[in-house]
Design a protein around this nucleic acid. Structure first.
Lengths: 207, 207
DNA sequence: AAACAATCACCCCAAACGGGTGATTTTTAG
DNA sequence: CTAAAAATCACCCGTTTGGGGTGATTGTTT
């Protein structure tokens, strides 16, 4: 069986060499190349034809997040695992949106990284425990929302683009009732339009 | 140091006893009780005062997802880990929305479960590898959207509740231009209203 | 050269929105 | 049990927005 072709893109030389050393010791892994930036890697990637790319975010030139779509263009089949110190929700979501297949923070142990590479090739998603926490928290609604159950229901539907009439029909209530709810929502959130209400509610995770 | 108080709610007796046996062998764990359904557990939970609850979804009476908010009401500090065979995105997201702190599938190994319980008490989020995959895929946009970059930008803003005028102002373009984009979006998605466009685009992950 | 993307213009009318004011019934909580 | 909160419905008003139609211009990409 062929070895798994891996490329590392990481600007810190110590870390880069470290990962390289770590991963070359693994039976089925073959580190075909490693680069200090995406811009350096760019022209060689096709030739390297890796199945897995370990990608840092903070790098000179094109950063890791911007690099994801470019990599996908060159190697549509390759799995991309972000390996970074940044664990802000914005970075995580942008990386996932861009099409990253995994997101590890650099405090992940050696075995975790090796395991992650294997998992990702088996169609798994991979994330460190602290990333999982961020993602999960992003789903959890604020428990002390000022909105009632019904108001939340209504606002959720407004946020999904439904008109008051559609909402009224689907909830089997009168349009006027929906209006009442909306007016109360506006008062509670201290806003006076749909978009403000949605913005405020999303920011505070009321919906 | 006190042992970690754990309660198991799982209707399959074999599994329930199995988990109980497995976890009682762990040094710092104390299985204070186990129940075959949430309805049975309900009145005793306060007394049990567990720090962690392992919760099945498919159970007679109140199911695990419905049980989450009720548990939170009784024991606001307890960590809830879903332990189930169901790995459909709907179940996962609903569980996380309800406030579950972890989501494991039943094929998780013993050590994974033990590790998860410890992690969750340290403020971590916990999910099995296949659950992580589901969550990550749910963030990844469809790469072959029929919408152009600008159209996607516009539709995203519409989905967030902005009016065409607001969008025009924020993108420094004319209202008519926004209208043109919207019209093209409707044609491409074969719809003729905001809500349909949002629904279709979200379903296909164009936005 | 042709197709596509992004930009802007002007027509029309129906639909939806938001503010105000007030009332009834059911549910929840003290 | 009683008061507060939630959910329900009604009718007033004018303004804004939405969506259909048609067409044009300027780049960009292929």
């Amino acid at each position: 069986m062929n070895k798994l072709r891996i490329v590392i893109i990481e600007d810190d030389e110590v870390l880069r060499k470290g990962y390289q050393l770590l991963l070359s010791d693994v039976e089925d892994f073959s580190i075909v190349n490693s680069y200090g930036s995406f811009d350096l890697a760019k022209k060689q990637l096709k030739e390297d034809s890796p199945q897995v790319i370990l990608l840092d975010i903070n790098m000179p030139g094109t950063n890791g997040l911007q690099a994801i779509p470019e990599i996908k263009k060159i190697l549509s089949q390759a799995y991309i695992i972000i390996l970074t110190v940044f664990d802000s929700p914005e970075n995580v979501f942008e990386a996932l949106n861009m099409g990253a297949d995994g997101y590890l923070t650099k405090d992940s142990g050696s075995e975790k990284i090796i395991e992650a590479i294997k998992d990702v090739c088996n169609g798994g998603g991979v994330m460190s425990i602290n990333i999982a926490r961020i993602v999960m928290h992003s789903f959890q609604k604020n428990l002390d929302s000022p909105l009632t159950k019904r108001e939340t229901e209504v606002l959720t539907r407004i946020a999904s683009g439904q008109t008051k009439i559609q909402i009224a029909n689907e909830l089997f209530i009168d349009q006027n009732t929906v209006r009442s709810h909306v007016k109360n929502i506006y008062i509670k959130l201290d806003v006076n339009s749909k978009s403000e209400a949605i913005k405020t509610a999303k920011k505070n995770r009321f919906i």
